[in-house]
Structure formats: structure tokens, C-alpha cells
């Protein structure tokens, strides 16, 4: 068999369309392929592949491999694992990239184990290291308190890539579509999704808001979030929270910002009674201006903040709200 060759990205579909995370993979995939001096390709595995394969062919790839099977309808993870593992054996890539999305963070590691190879999870930077002859990845560790540089020594090397770190690749001339034949034993399908529920969207989405105000344990209870709501209304902001506030049941977990919550990229993020634990900061790395309102001058959040007020929010925040209302009415 020929030596493993090329960079393969695994396409993710969202409501039948190629997800934007896949176009992000193509950006970093193209860089890796260039340093390797090899080709970039993508694989689409789905119930019906025609439309999505067409879309994927414009991701700067030379080939789009497709696997079509009715068992791949929706996202049935065991069927996908069987299909992808078999297809990858045929394609024989050197590097495999998967998005670290809800789907990819399970798919990537399981695929790696199935292939008997190593994987770097949740990476934010990747390069081909000719010296180590390995894929070298940078990933946040210890809740974001530090970064690890790791070498994936196995062949092929697999990595999952954190969403929104790379820009999506620009559309290119279409690559060639290569259908693969893979059989999936229906018995490999074990788990079944019984129901799915989307949280009703209320107000401005945290991830899309230009201004976010977040509350933490320092608020002391659910009531004070009403003050945050009022400030948010005045500033057209979204309200978020630290995990401590969510775990305490003061606000739903959909409010959580951070490592295991949402990532925001607001122009302005006002934190109230949040200490600035690394796991919280992990969700605000692309925020442009952080404001800290905290009574402890030594709180870590001041290291991350552009503007800070040392004081009790009970006094600071109502005065801030009044001043904002005045400013807004004088506009």
C-alpha cells in the first residue's frame, strides 16, 4: 500500500447543508496540505450526498469523497463511525481533521480509537512539523490557565479543531467527486435519539450580542439578575452568567459562558461579581473590551479587564444604570 498521503477533512452537515465549521477546517487543512506538499480532500457521509457534496467541492479541495447510505440519515454516530473508518482505510490520509462541535468532539476521538491512532482534542493551532515528522497542535489546558503544544506521532494523525478559531475558506473552483462503496451492518446501530428540544430563544443571542452583561456568584442570588436584565434592556445587551451562578440555579444553564458553556465575542462584556476563573475566561477570549465590577481589587478578572470598578455591585450597578438612562435620554 502507498504511504499515507494528504489532509482529509470530515464534513459536518447542519440541516442538510455543509456546516460553517467544515469551511473553517478547510482553511487550516489547506495550510497543512501546503506544508506537506500534498492534497486537501473532504469526505461527506450522509443519507443523500448530492447537494452537500456539490457544496463541499468548493472548499479548496482536490477531491470530495462521498459515502451514501440510508443508515447515515440524521447523525447516527455508530453508522458514521463504521462508514468513516472504512472509507479512511481506502483513502489512506496522513492527517484527518474534525470540527470540535457537539458531533465532532465525540466522533473524532472514537474514530481515532477505531483506527488505533492518536488525536489532539480541541486544538486552536496546527502545523506540520517536518523535524518531528508529526502534526503539532496547540490546545488550551487546565481550563485555559495554560497552553500545551503536543505532537501527534501516529499515522494518520487526527485533530479536532475548536470552532470559530479559523475563518471559513473562500469558495474555490470545484474539486472532483469520488463516490466510495462502504457497507454498514445495520446491527452496528445501537443508540437512538428519542427526542430533541431546542431552547426557545428569548431576546438577543449571547453568541451574537455586541454587548453582554454577565453575573456571577458575587450577586448572591437570583433576584439581582433583574438589575442585570434592566441594564441589558437599556444597552440592548444579552445577559450571561458564570457557572457558579448557573449551578446555584439562579439562572438556567443556557446562560453559562466559558469552557463548558458558550463562547461570546462581544465588543463589550460587563462582568458583575465574577472572579475571572480561567474556565470562565476561556469563553471570552475574543471579547474586545471587558469591564469588571468586583469588590475584591485582587480578583483575577481585573487582569483581563480594560476598565474596572472596585466596589460593591449593590451600589455601583444601580448608579451605573441611572447614568446610562440619563445618557440615553439626552441623545
Amino acid at each position: 500500500m502507498a504511504d499515507p498521503n494528504g489532509v482529509l477533512i470530515i464534513a459536518e452537515l447542519a440541516e442538510g447543508k455543509v456546516a460553517s465549521v467544515t469551511a473553517e477546517l478547510a482553511t487550516i487543512g489547506a495550510q497543512l496540505a501546503k506544508s506537506l506538499g500534498q492534497e486537501l480532500s473532504v469526505i461527506v457521509a450522509a443519507h443523500k450526498v448530492a447537494t452537500s457534496a456539490g457544496e463541499a467541492s468548493h472548499l479548496g479541495v482536490s477531491k470530495v469523497y462521498t459515502v451514501e447510505n440510508s443508515l447515515l440519515a440524521g447523525f447516527q454516530i455508530e453508522a458514521h463511525l463504521v462508514a468513516l473508518a472504512a472509507a479512511i482505510k481506502q483513502i489512506n490520509p496522513r492527517i484527518i481533521l474534525v470540527a470540535r462541535s457537539v458531533i465532532g468532539r465525540d466522533l473524532g476521538p472514537r474514530l481515532a480509537f477505531r483506527l488505533g491512532v492518536g488525536i489532539a482534542q480541541d486544538t486552536v493551532d496546527l502545523s506540520w512539523d517536518a523535524g518531528h515528522h508529526a502534526l503539532v497542535a496547540t490546545r488550551p489546558v487546565y481550563g485555559g490557565a495554560s497552553m500545551a503544544k503536543v505532537a501527534v506521532k501516529s499515522v494518520p494523525a487526527v485533530a479536532t479543531v475548536r470552532p470559530k478559531v479559523f475563518d471559513p475558506i473562500a469558495n474555490s473552483a470545484p474539486g472532483q467527486i469520488v463516490p466510495l462503496t462502504v457497507s454498514i451492518d445495520p446491527k452496528s446501530v445501537m443508540t437512538k435519539v428519542l427526542s430533541q428540544q431546542k431552547q426557545a430563544a428569548t431576546g438577543i443571542k449571547l453568541e451574537e450580542a455586541r454587548i453582554v452583561i454577565g453575573g456571577g456568584r458575587g450577586l448572591g442570588g437570583p433576584e439581582p439578575f433583574k438589575v442585570l436584565d434592566e441594564v441589558a434592556k437599556e444597552l440592548k445587551a444579552a445577559v450571561g452568567a458564570s457557572r457558579a451562578a448557573c449551578d446555584a440555579g439562579w439562572v438556567p444553564h443556557t446562560y453559562q459562558i466559558g469552557l463548558t458553556g458558550k463562547s461570546i465575542s462581544a465588543d463589550l462584556y460587563i462582568t458583575v461579581g465574577i472572579s475571572g476563573a480561567s474556565q470562565h475566561l476561556a469563553g471570552i477570549s475574543t471579547v474586545k473590551n471587558v469591564v469588571a465590577i468586583n469588590k475584591d481589587a485582587d480578583a483575577n478578572i481585573f487582569k483581563e479587564a480594560r476598565y474596572g470598578v472596585v466596589g460593591d455591585w449593590n451600589k455601583v450597578l444601580p448608579a451605573f444604570l441611572t447614568a446610562v438612562r440619563e445618557l440615553n435620554s439626552n441623545r
Binding site: V141, S146, K149, A151, V152, S154, K303, G308, V309
Partner: peptide, 21 residues
């Protein structure tokens, strides 16, 4: 034997200055 080897652990430099009001 590790398939993924840790090469380095580091803390990225952060250039942030907070203006205290």
C-alpha cells in the same frame, strides 16, 4: 507508549492594562 507527546506547556503573554475607574 504515548501516541500524543507533550512537547511544551506555556502561558501565553497577555498585554492587558486595566483602567481602574
Amino acid at each position: 507508549e504515548a501516541k500524543v507527546e507533550m512537547l511544551e506547556l506555556f502561558i501565553p503573554a497577555r498585554e492587558k492594562k486595566c483602567e481602574i475607574i
